[in-house]
């Protein structure tokens, strides 16, 4: 197994499947009378969050606590970070505190890579800038697998602000590793220059792609993009790239609708679609805990062993 989880590209096919298989067993423990496992007793997991993301932080926190790790939440607000302490100094502090793993969410792309150079412990990327969010991709893959039985050969369409989306980057990489065919649909302004090197097909036409999709993943459109001429108006975006009831009907019967949340209902996804039985949005949240338990167990369970050092 790898030492840190910084990018979905760090995971080879065997490692990725090991995480997903392990997550199935972790999910099974959630239905037991005692949900807590002793596996990471005595280990310290720090949630180092430089961005507000209550849902991601809670998911990691729940995962760590289910495995009996001690969890320290270190958020930029109300800590020395807001007084200008550098990431490196923070890393040295966490090191001195004996953090076995640091889960980092940061507005700058690549911050987890820097942290990993300054810490002995395991670093888990919980979303860095517009780069990646590998555990989100893992939980998305887990959800696809549990709903559709496989990932290999699935046609996955990712729709929206690919340019700024860490979810899209991680999903493209992981899904390619696991043998899915990814199509990116977005206005050309929201696709990065250089996207042609990604293992994915690009389309500007959502209606043409939907009938050939097993999975449609809608990306959140950030408020700040709406005023920066990436598209003329919310209304036009919604009309051209939003998933409404009519478009839902164009999907094959078995197809599922995913969204990493939080949603802009009525913008990229219609409320009726978000709440439809084909939507996996709620499952994605509960699957998130299982997948993060699996990641922590696999990265941290054996840390300190000769095999992993």
């Amino acid at each position: 197994m790898i030492r840190h989880l910084l990018s979905a590209a760090d995971l080879g096919r065997d490692d990725a499947l090991l995480v997903l298989d392990t997550a199935i067993e972790m999910a099974a423990t959630a239905s037991r009378s005692v949900k807590k496992l002793p596996t990471l007793r005595g280990r310290t997991v720090v949630n180092l969050f430089y961005e507000d993301s209550t849902r991601t932080r809670i998911s990691f926190e729940a995962a760590a606590k289910r495995l009996s790790a001690d969890v320290i939440n270190f958020s930029a607000k109300g800590s020395s970070v807001s007084k200008g302490e550098s990431l490196k100094d923070t890393a040295l502090t966490l090191q001195a505190m004996g953090a076995d793993a640091v889960v980092i969410r940061h507005p700058e792309s690549g911050a987890p890579y820097r942290l990993a150079q300054w810490l002995d412990g395991v670093v888990i990327n919980a979303g860095d800038g517009t780069h990646e969010h590998p555990t989100q991709a893992l939980l998305d893959a887990y959800t696809m697998r549990s709903r559709l039985g496989r990932i290999d050969g699935l046609r996955v369409t990712i729709v929206g602000d690919v340019l700024h989306s860490r979810v899209a980057r991680s999903n493209v990489l992981l899904l390619d590793t696991l043998g899915a065919e990814v199509t990116l649909v977005a206005p050309p302004t929201l696709l990065p220059v250089g996207v042609e090197a990604w293992p994915a097909t690009v389309s500007y036409d959502l209606d043409a792609v939907l009938p050939k999709s097993d999975v449609v993943m809608m990306l959140r459109v950030q408020r700040e993009r709406m005023n920066d001429s990436y598209f003329p108006t919310q209304r036009e975006y919604s009309r051209r790239y939003g998933l409404d009831v009519r478009r839902l009907g164009a999907l094959p019967e078995h197809a599922i609708v995913m969204h990493p949340g939080p949603m802009n209902r009525g913008m990229e996804i219609a409320p009726q679609v978000a709440d439809s039985p084909r939507s996996t949005i709620v499952e994605q949240v509960s699957n998130g805990v299982s997948v993060r338990m699996a990641v922590m167990y696999l990265l941290l369970g054996g840390s300190g062993s000769k095999e992993n050092s």
Partner: peptide
């Protein structure tokens, strides 16, 4: 676990 490393889980 620390000595022998994390391993795949069985059902």
């Amino acid at each position: 676990l620390r000595l022998r490393g994390a391993r795949a889980l069985e059902h």
